[in-house]
Design a protein around this nucleic acid. Sequence first.
DNA 1: CTGTGTCCGTACACGATGTTCGACCAGTTG
DNA 2: CAACTGGTCGAACATCGTGTACGGACACAG
Lengths: 205, 205
Amino acid sequence: MPSITRSRSGGDRRAALDARVLAAVERLLAEGMKYTEISVARILEEAGIARSTFYVHFRDKTDILARLAGTLRQDLLEIAGRWEPGDGVEGLAATFAESIAFHRKHSAVLLAITEAAAYDSGIRDFYSSDLDAFEAKVAQALLAEQSQGRTIGGVSVEAAGRVIVWGGESAIAHHIQVDDGSGDQAFARELASLWWYGAFRRPAP
Amino acid sequence: MPSITRSRSGGDRRAALDARVLAAVERLLAEGMKYTEISVARILEEAGIARSTFYVHFRDKTDILARLAGTLRQDLLEIAGRWEPGDGVEGLAATFAESIAFHRKHSAVLLAITEAAAYDSGIRDFYSSDLDAFEAKVAQALLAEQSQGRTIGGVSVEAAGRVIVWGGESAIAHHIQVDDGSGDQAFARELASLWWYGAFRRPAP
DNA sequence: CTGTGTCCGTACACGATGTTCGACCAGTTG
DNA sequence: CAACTGGTCGAACATCGTGTACGGACACAG
């Protein structure tokens, strides 16, 4: 009677093919193609596999993006989450610089995610949930600062958190697209100053 | 000899049918359908016209969006452009409140524009050009304030303009999607305070 | 009546997504 | 070795969406 247990090489082969597809798409994305204009046929050609094989490994086209995203977004928010109000505006600027660098390194995939999130609810879900969680965290940090008397009471923590997170994310994403990198430091400092003096250390009116 | 001149009723009929299509799409959008999932067939059904007729009036599907957008975006930026630094933070808050109200009124179409801009370069063009122009205008206002000594020299006007315009636009668009309107006033005030104290009247470090 | 412009309906070409199926190959097990 | 299993391939297929082509109907103006 032949084996019932899974062959050991099976998992490896499977993972290897997954990686080949993922790498192929990343390559196409890096070449400047938009996620929407990359057809499955083109992916198959690039990865050198058959159509039927692809659909064994991936539920559909957006599944590629979901896996490509992987922990990308969480990593990004983890960078931003390391900052604490005690680190001040310089620490915030450093955090943004790191965040921008990360964006630049993975700009192709991150851009594809925001592109697809605009019309695909599946992608939108895990895109929004990350940012929502971060928005709540920022609001909480502001609240804590307020209770310590370091941030003035006039700041609406929910509204401020929303602008800081969603506005900041979009601003960075756009900056990456239009700036060649020479303006990154200034942009990081400016972002830090806007949030710091605009909210955390907003002067009394 | 029959007429060479255009029949007077022609233009009217043409415009009327255009309007019928535009209204149909706006209706579908308002029902919560995303622009991408609205098929031409569905539009024809809703407008009650034939496929061939549609393509006489509209070059393609994105042409609908372009015309639907019309001067919408310019109107929006005109609202924002009315504010001047001399109007202070209260004036800025009022301007944002107006801007948010406008967003809310036309949220369906505006959302469709941002959705399509993510993958359609044609839409993206007129979407970006408006915002770019506004970004430049904000930067110039900041520069003028700096030369008058009312804004500190440490502000990088280009970076600040970028965050204010692109971040602000995205923050508003997202706010509209998740807030039922009860938070609009607080959001407008917060946006105004962030930009005012974060840039225009940023305290010296 | 005749030309012109508008609209209708149908059919079509084309491209993209996702499914199905039979055949093949490689490795594992008895 | 022989049988079985999992992974892969290739090709065909169903389905849907976009945009085009064309012939016919109708209204209206000269």
